[in-house]
Design a protein around this nucleic acid. Structure first.
Lengths: 195, 195
DNA sequence: AACATAAGTTAGTGAATACTTACAAACACT
DNA sequence: AGTGTTTGTAAGTATTCACTAACTTATGTT
């Protein structure tokens, strides 16, 4: 599953196109133009368009996985929650095209392989979020009024919608600020608290 | 903005196709096949594919709007919250193709007009949800720890993700049951409560 | 020097797409 | 009876798409 430098360039070009023109703009022709060589040259590096997309998603998955592993290491669950989303949001801020790729689900229909890559990506997020929430609930920091799965569903849904709004606003507003707000709101809501 | 019976049939056929084949399957050719007449006959009733999609979304918007207006009339905010989602979910259960249309955002890139129709649709949902949440907060039934907008964001995100999961599961699980669960979880979370 | 490989080119292919044109039949209205 | 409108058809158009074939050139390797 290793990638040549040229393949990496192509993946990056694909990302650029996704940001500017969306899933429908991601054609071999545009990809070739962005790479400044012919369409057929693309096929020297990938056997098909599908392979390009899958490679991009897999690269993204590995990338996110290792970044989250490294960035999220506090002992306090609430702190770790903040770190997780902070890392996640700053990653997408640096690479907005991945927001199009992951959260648009416009890719969803293209092929089985792409579908699997996208699901794998969603699972990585859960993999990092789950133990943190569980621990928080066990320690009594997060509410036990609803199940862990339900909590995660609500958190992921909220995050996904935030990314969606950012995307249809053409990445114009400051996602760091509104992302932090979102994290605060959720924390306030899921924290065990006194009214 | 009125619609002929034939146009309505075409819209329904488009819905059927969306359910079975997704956004990419929604072509004039497939539409003609589903209607059992020629491709060019479609153009006797709509000037363009875009018009068909917009008409479908507008019909959907009106439909949802009036259904929500009629179904949600309790005085208790919490009860109204339940009614709202119950109505919403049973509507999508009856018309799963609209889930593809509205929540896939695969349509999002197609054209400006379609975009506007989709945004209008999202606003209708907010229009019905907003006063209900506001009243709940004022009465002290729902938490005031975060703002109304933040609450709505979280609720809408949760609902959207639920629909997304239902869709990628090919509408196989019982959305009424898991939808009710979701409504309960959210209510538990946003209710003012004692720990 | 001879050859292999990697990475590019030009020029195409066939399939699919949204949409058009020219014509025909059914029907309503005068 | 004649005429116009509505709604269908068959046959096509231009464009776009992913992908391919055949050839070229640069760079090692033996």
């Amino acid at each position: 599953m290793d990638i040549t430098p040229r393949q990496f360039e192509i993946i990056e070009a694909a990302g650029k196109i996704l940001t500017s023109s969306g899933v429908r703009g991601l054609t071999i022709k545009n990809l070739a133009k962005e790479m400044q060589f012919s369409e057929s040259a693309i096929y020297r590096h990938f056997a098909s368009k599908e392979e390009i997309i899958v490679a991009m998603l897999n690269f993204l998955a590995d990338s996110i996985d290792s970044r989250l592993t490294n960035a999220v290491r506090s002992s306090d669950p609430e702190q770790r929650f903040k770190e997780l989303f902070h890392e996640q949001i700053s990653f997408f801020k640096k690479n907005p095209h991945f927001v199009v790729a992951v959260f648009s689900d416009g890719l969803m229909e293209e092929s089985q392989l792409i579908n699997e890559a996208l699901l794998k990506l969603m699972n990585i997020k859960t993999k990092h979020l789950m133990p943190l929430i569980l621990e928080g609930q066990q320690k009594g920091v997060f509410t036990n009024a609803i199940t862990t799965d339900e909590l995660i569903h609500i958190i992921m849904g909220t995050f996904k919608l935030q990314m969606f709004k950012w995307r249809i606003a053409n990445f114009q507003f400051d996602i760091t600020r509104s992302g932090d707000n979102m994290v605060q709101s959720i924390l306030t809501l899921i924290r065990t608290r006194q009214i």
